[in-house]
């Protein structure tokens, strides 16, 4: 059986909000490594990888590896019924085709349980190749989301280029062009406001803004975002979830025909 008690229940709500538009159905895997998910978006352009480590849970009990297939829209509907401050517990009995979400208010005066049907999902485990990235950019997640949103009102794709100058986000559309350059900036009051650029060699990749905008829905999970870029490889857009793990999006670039 499985029982996972997460005091910061709001975090699971945010996780679902950040992936439910990208992925319809996915297997949540529960093992000694943690509560994880790996899924490809329906248009096969992006992969989501989530890990919530056992240490982040007040109670983390699963006596064997369990994979639970869930429709993420339905799961999001259920989690929307939990308050942002609620404690969320997931429970599943061995061999059961349902999972129960229990929501407790912080003062313990309201307890709700929602039972959701599980589904069978055949999904291949993907092998993520080890890569040395040409450039790694860490920046405030809100700034990255703002840039993607702004550029998507001008064009459909974004070219992300890292040079000695900084990281450049460019787009082009019927009404004109737009360029936003962020330079390395570590002279900030708080570390999460810094922009840090590690460049081994210059890199320039093109991505669909629709996907970029979709994955910036993870912004509430972390103050910072890390972009790892290499020519001809998917970008890795990572939001670290404080003390618990991460949500990573692998986004395929557009390639020359």
């Amino acid at each position: 059986m499985l029982e996972l008690r997460l005091v910061q229940g709001g975090l699971l709500k945010k996780v679902l909000e950040s992936i439910k538009d990208l992925v319809n159905d996915a297997n949540f895997d529960c093992s000694a490594t943690g509560f994880s998910l790996q899924a490809m978006d329906s248009s096969q352009v992006a992969v989501v990888a989530l890990l919530l480590r056992p240490e982040g849970f007040e109670r983390y009990w699963c006596d064997r590896n369990i994979s639970m297939g869930m429709n993420l829209n339905n799961m999001a509907k259920m989690l929307k019924c939990a308050g942002n401050d609620d404690i969320i517990t997931l429970k599943a009995e061995d061999g059961s085709d349902t999972v129960t979400f229990m929501f407790e208010s912080p003062t313990q005066d309201k307890i709700a349980d929602f039972e959701m049907k599980l589904m069978d999902i055949n999904s291949e485990r993907l092998g993520f190749p080890e890569a040395d990235y040409h450039a790694i950019v860490r920046m405030p997640s809100s700034e990255f989301a703002r840039i993607c949103k702004d550029l998507s009102s001008i064009g459909n794709t974004v070219v992300i280029s890292v040079t000695k100058e900084g990281v450049r986000f460019s787009t082009r559309g019927d009404i004109g062009t737009a360029n936003v350059v962020c330079r390395q900036n570590t002279a900030v009051d708080k570390p999460e406001e810094a922009t840090i650029i590690e460049m081994n060699e210059p890199v320039s990749l093109t991505f669909g803004l629709r996907y970029m905008n979709s994955l910036t829905k993870a912004t509430p999970l972390s103050n910072t975002v890390t972009l790892s870029l290499s020519s001809g490889l998917p970008a890795v857009v990572e939001y670290r979830i404080a003390e618990m793990g991460y949500i990573r999006f692998y986004l395929a670039p557009k390639i020359e025909e």
């Binding site: 352009v45 993907l126 669909g208 395929a252 557009k254």
Partner: peptide
Amino acid sequence: LKSQARIARFFQAS
């Protein structure tokens, strides 16, 4: 001309 790559081409299924 750039076309959208499918993500699977980058990952070996394991």
